[in-house]
Design a protein around this nucleic acid. Structure first.
Length: 477
RNA sequence: UCCCCGAUAGCUCAAUGGUAGAGCGAGCGGCUGUUAACCGCUAGGUUUUAGGUUCGAGUCCUAAUCGGGGAGCCA
């Protein structure tokens, strides 16, 4: 009869004691005695804990095997799970048979049984999964994604896939990455031949009619507009996928490629929208806390002492609701000196947001009704004519984690706003059709997945909460 | 894109303008139901690159490259 194959997660539980099992994974550390026996910490990623292997010299091939069991080596071990007599672990494996899959030459293997800097680990992102931090991160990220899907699925939201490649010129959301099959090297040489003026006024022009899609195409910066078409036809829905921004941002909170969750709901006003956003945040954070206690404990121990407490506080307390105009008044009356002076009409800066979330209230704040001049064309204009039905959810430490709005459902107002924002309404004919035929009030928001992970884990740099970060000049792996 | 800081052993860091060092990791030995084990010994360096100042540069100056932090833009 074959020995039962078991993952470390199952093996380290008390009810596994007494079983003879087969475990497989990678060596984290080895502590050995030259004459006696050795302890090996085995990790297979199934959970935070390692399984301690106790290897006596009676194990076949002991001497040769031990020489190769460096950090990073992979192996299969068979033996009996026993209650551990020593502190540090409840269960250990008394190894009877050991097989090495692959050694890891310590002269070249970059990971050691010590703490490495995140900067160093970023350069070996393909191996950083094998550290405590990135193992925990992988499991927390997975749990968060699952919680997000479960939240919407439980409420009857439809998961829809909006396009990654888009020909919508601009959504007011920043620089886009161009997608093309044109031969750029050839175009460059043609331009060189034609001269800078291209032999005619206006210079050298690229004919995008020759391009793959017959016009300029880009990677999406948001699935919102397409999401609205779904919401305004078959109801509550959400998108959850990668989005791309070609902005030259070099900060700890920005990525050129990141994942975004964007629900869109018909018959929702801004208040319904804010309620859903708040319930959403609190529910998914609670879910991760419940599901990954050991990983979260690690983040509390090693990364951010407030990690768990901060999440509990967010889960347990109501968010503050605050119209932009009142926020400006609060900031003006705060007695604080800000680098950027506060005045009605400005977009709030990081320092202003921090004052509100960290000093004034000490919890998340939902700011609403921003000046129309600083917000996108699709946000519903209020009766005062000066503000729009926008909302930003700001959280302590991270800043803006959600941006959303009630959408403008009135055709004439929307068209006027497009012109005001310098857009050509003809380019958005399909978007405007939603207002021409059976228009409904509707609303939605977007959550940056990596921002939520920063909040959850207390990690300082967004490049360390996504497996392979893309930032300006960086697309290795 | 702007401002500030940094780059020294595999990793993390020291070194008044005057012989480049420690801890960890690695190898060897010792000791031990060990827990990022412990103790001893050994090996390990074109001080990011290119110029410059100086009798002498890891150290001062200039530039480039790379990295970090902050800001803007935003999720």
């Amino acid at each position: 009869m074959a020995t039962e194959r078991m993952k470390v997660k199952a093996a380290v539980t008390a009810d596994a004691i007494g079983k003879t099992v087969d475990v497989r994974g990678w060596v984290r550390t080895k502590r050995e005695s030259k004459q006696g026996f050795a302890f090996v910490e085995l990790n297979d990623g199934s959970c935070f804990q390692n399984l301690q292997l106790v290897i006596e010299q009676t194990v076949p091939g002991y001497a040769d095997l031990l020489k190769q069991l460096h950090t990073g080596a992979s192996l299969r071990a068979v033996g009996e799970l026993k209650a551990s007599p020593a502190k540090g672990q409840a269960v250990e494996l008394a190894v009877r048979e050991l097989e090495l899959y692959g050694s890891a030459d310590p002269d070249s293997y970059p990971l050691q049984k010590k703490q490495h800097s995140f900067e160093f680990l970023r350069d070996i992102a393909h191996l950083r999964w094998r550290t405590n931090t990135f193992g925990a991160m992988a499991r927390v990220r997975n749990a968060l994604c699952d919680a997000i899907h479960r939240f919407f699925q439980d409420r009857g939201f439809l998961y829809v896939h909006t396009p990654i490649i888009t020909t919508s010129d601009c959504e007011g959301a920043g620089q886009m990455f161009q997608v093309t099959t044109l031969d750029l090297a050839r175009l460059a040489s043609l331009q060189a031949t034609a001269g800078p003026a291209g032999g005619k006024p206006g210079g050298f022009e690229v004919d995008f009619g020759q391009d793959f899609f017959g016009k300029r195409a880009s990677l999406t910066v948001s699935g919102q507009l397409e999401g609205e078409t779904v919401a305004c036809s078959i109801g509550d829905c959400y998108t959850f996928g990668p989005t791309f921004r070609a902005e030259n941002s070099n900060t700890t909170r920005h990525l050129a490629e990141f994942w975004m969750v964007e629900p869109e709901m018909p018959f929702y006003d801004l208040d319904d929208n804010a309620k859903l956003a708040e319930t959403f945040i609190r529910t998914i954070l609670q879910n991760v806390l419940d599901r990954c206690p050991r990983d979260m404990e690690f983040f509390r121990e090693r990364i951010d002492a407030q990690a768990i407490e901060r999440i509990r506080s967010i889960v347990e307390n109501d968010f503050v609701r605050l119209p932009y105009t009142e926020a400006i008044t609060l900031l003006e009356q705060s007695g604080q000196t800000f680098e950027f002076p506060v005045k009605w009409g400005i977009d709030l800066q990081s320092e202003h947001e921090r004052y509100l979330t960290e000093k004034k209230f000490g919890r998340p704040v939902i700011l609403t009704d921003y000046p129309r001049e600083i917000k996108s064309f699709y946000m519903r204009v209020n009766d005062d004519g000066k503000t729009v039905r926008a909302m930003d959810v700001l959280v302590p430490g991270v800043g803006e984690i959600i941006g959303g709005s009630q959408r403008e459902e009135r055709l004439d107002v929307l068209q006027a706003r497009m012109v005001e924002c310098g857009l050509n309404p003809d380019d958005y004919w399909w978007y405007l059709d939603l207002r021409r035929y059976g228009t409904v009030p509707h609303a939605g928001f977007g959550l940056g997945l990596e921002r939520a992970l920063l909040l959850l884990t207390g990690m300082a740099n967004i490049r360390d909460v996504i497996p392979y970060p893309r930032t300006p000049k960086h697309a290795e792996f």
